[in-house]
C-alpha cells in the first residue's frame, strides 16, 4: 500500500511524511520480529547441521518441530495439566487478592496488622518455600496450587489496594456529602477507581501464576500435579530427550504469551471506553 491509497484531503509534505512513517512503522511492527525469528531459526538450523551438533546437546529446530507433532499425545495432556493448575491458581489469586485488598481498605487496623506479612510472603523466594509446602500440606495438588497462588496473588493485592485508595478526593467528599454508605462508596467509587490498577496487577499475576505452577511442578513433581509441561520438561532432560525438552519449553512460552494476550484483552475491554491508558491520542 502506498501513501496515495490513504484517503486524505490536502496533504503537505510534512503530513505526507508522517503518514508514510506511520505506515512503515505499522508494517515493521510485524515484519521485523518475524524476520528476527526466521534469522535465528535459520542460523540455529544451519549451525546444528553444519557443525553436526548431536541432538542431545542442541536439537535442531526441525527436530523440535517434528517432536511437537510426534509427541503431541504426551504434550497435549501435559499442557492441559499445567494450564489447569495455572488458571485455578490465577482465579484464586484474583479472588484472594481482591478480598484481602478490600479488607485492607475497609479497616486500617487489618492493613496495619497484616500487610508486612503479605510482603514477607511475597519476597521469600517461592522455590525455597515449595519443599516446605510439600511437607506440611498433605495433598500435593493443594501444595502446588498454594505455591502458584502465593506468587500470583501479591501483585493483585498491592495494585488493588493502591487503586482502592486512589479515588478522587473531591469525589470522596461528594459521596460523603450525599451520605453514601461504605458499601456504596466501595461499589460506585473505590472499585471503578481501582479497576485500572487491578487490571495492571492481573497482567503481572497471569505470568506469575504460570511461573508458580512451573516451580511447583519442578519441586513437588508429578505426584501432585499429574504430568504437566514442567515435569515433562524435567523428565525429558533426565532422558536426554532434548527434542521433547525444547518442545515443552516452547509450549510453556506459548502459554505465557497466550495468558498475557488474554489479560491484555480483558484489560482493554474493561477500559477502552473511558480510561486514559486505552485511548488513542489524536495527532
Amino acid at each position: 500500500m502506498t501513501v496515495q491509497d490513504i484517503e486524505q484531503p490536502v496533504v503537505d509534505t510534512e503530513e505526507e511524511q508522517r503518514a508514510r512513517q506511520k505506515q512503515i512503522t505499522k508494517i515493521a511492527r510485524w515484519t521485523l520480529p518475524s524476520l528476527v525469528l526466521l534469522v535465528v531459526i535459520g542460523g540455529w538450523q544451519a549451525y546444528v547441521t553444519l557443525a553436526e551438533v548431536p541432538h542431545y546437546i542442541l536439537p535442531s529446530p526441525w527436530l523440535i518441530a517434528k517432536t511437537l507433532v510426534t509427541d503431541w499425545d504426551v504434550l497435549w495432556p501435559a499442557l492441559v495439566v499445567t494450564g489447569r493448575l495455572t488458571s485455578i491458581a490465577l482465579i484464586l489469586a484474583v479472588l484472594g487478592g481482591l478480598a484481602i485488598a478490600i479488607a485492607f481498605t475497609q479497616s486500617k487496623w487489618i492493613e496495619l496488622a497484616m500487610f508486612p506479612y503479605a510482603v514477607i510472603l511475597q519476597v521469600t523466594p517461592v522455590v525455597a518455600v515449595a519443599p516446605l509446602l510439600q511437607i506440611y500440606v498433605d495433598s500435593a495438588f493443594l501444595a502446588a496450587l498454594l505455591c502458584a497462588w502465593i506468587v500470583a496473588f501479591f501483585p493483585i493485592l498491592s495494585n488493588t489496594t493502591i487503586g482502592l485508595k486512589s479515588a478522587d478526593h473531591n469525589l470522596q467528599d461528594l459521596f460523603k456529602i450525599y451520605g453514601a454508605s461504605k458499601w456504596q462508596t466501595l461499589r460506585y467509587l473505590a472499585a471503578p477507581s481501582a479497576l485500572p490498577f487491578f487490571l495492571g496487577g492481573l497482567k503481572i499475576a497471569g505470568g506469575l501464576a504460570l511461573i508458580g505452577s512451573v516451580v511447583a511442578e519442578f519441586v513437588i513433581g508429578r505426584a501432585g500435579t499429574g504430568l504437566g509441561l514442567a515435569s515433562t520438561l524435567l523428565e525429558a532432560s533426565y532422558r536426554f530427550n532434548f527434542g521433547r525438552l525444547y518442545a515443552s519449553l516452547i509450549l510453556i512460552s506459548v502459554m505465557g504469551v497466550a495468558i498475557f494476550g488474554l489479560m491484555s484483552l480483558i484489560s482493554h475491554l474493561c477500559l477502552f471506553r473511558w480510561h486514559e491508558s486505552a485511548l488513542k491520542r489524536e495527532d
Partner: peptide, 21 residues
C-alpha cells in the same frame, strides 16, 4: 474541578445523587 466519574456516562454522573439515595 468538574469531578466527574470518568467511567460513567454523562447521564449516570448526573444520576449519582439519586442513586446514592
Amino acid at each position: 474541578e468538574p469531578t466527574l466519574m470518568p467511567w460513567a456516562k454523562v447521564k449516570d454522573n448526573v444520576w449519582l445523587p439519586f442513586r446514592l439515595r
